Amino acid sequence: MTPQFEYSTFAHPQDIQQLASILEQCYLMSSDDSEIYINRIGTENFRFIRVEQVIGGLAILAMGQWWGGQRVPMTGIAAVGIAPEYRGSGAAIALMQHTLKELHTQEVPISVLYPATQRLYRKAGYEQGGSLCTWEISTQSIQIREQPLPLQPIIPINHQVFHDLYQQQARLTHGYLDRNQAIWQGLIQPNNQEIIYGYLIGDKDQPQGYIIFSQHSAQDSAILQVRDWVVLSDAAAQTFWSFVANHRSQIKQVRWKSSAIDSLTLRLPEQTAKILHHDRWMLRVIDLVKALEMRGYPPGIQAELHLEVKDDLLAGNNGKFILSVANGCGEVTKGGKGELQLDIKGLAPLYTSLFTPYDLQLAGKLDATETALLAATQIFAGVSPWMINFF
Rank of each mutant, 00 (worst) to 15 (best):
N45W: 07
R47E: 01
F48Q: 02
I49D: 00
R50N: 09
R50I: 04
V51G: 00
I55L: 09
G56Y: 05
G57V: 03
G57T: 02
L58Q: 06
I60H: 05
L61H: 15
A62R: 15
A62F: 14
G64L: 12
G64C: 11
W66E: 08
W67E: 07
W67F: 15
G68I: 07
G69Q: 03
Q70E: 15
R71T: 11
R71I: 13
M74F: 00
G76L: 09
G76V: 09
A79F: 01
A79H: 02
V80R: 02
A83I: 01
P84K: 08
Y86H: 14
S89P: 02
I93R: 08
A94W: 03
M96E: 09
Q97E: 13
T99P: 04
T99K: 04
L100C: 11
K101T: 13
E102A: 12
L103E: 06
E107Q: 15
E107K: 14
S111W: 01
V112K: 06
V112H: 08
P115F: 07
P115S: 09
T117C: 01
Q118F: 13
R119H: 11
K123S: 10
A124C: 04
A124Y: 02
G125N: 03
Y126V: 08
Y126M: 05
E127T: 05
Q128C: 07
Q128P: 00
G129C: 10
L132M: 10
T134F: 06
W135I: 11
I137M: 13
S138M: 12
S141D: 15
I142S: 06
Q143C: 12
I144W: 04
I144Q: 02
I144H: 01
E146V: 11
L149Y: 10
L149Q: 09
L149A: 08
Q152N: 12
Q152Y: 04
Q152K: 09
Q152M: 03
I154N: 00
P156C: 06
P156W: 07
I157Y: 00
I157D: 00
H159M: 10
Q160C: 07
Q160K: 13
F162Y: 10
F162T: 09
H163G: 05
D164W: 04
Q168F: 06
Q169L: 15
A170D: 10
R171M: 14
R171H: 14
R171Y: 13
R171F: 12
T173F: 07
T173G: 04
Y176A: 15
Y176V: 00
L177Y: 13
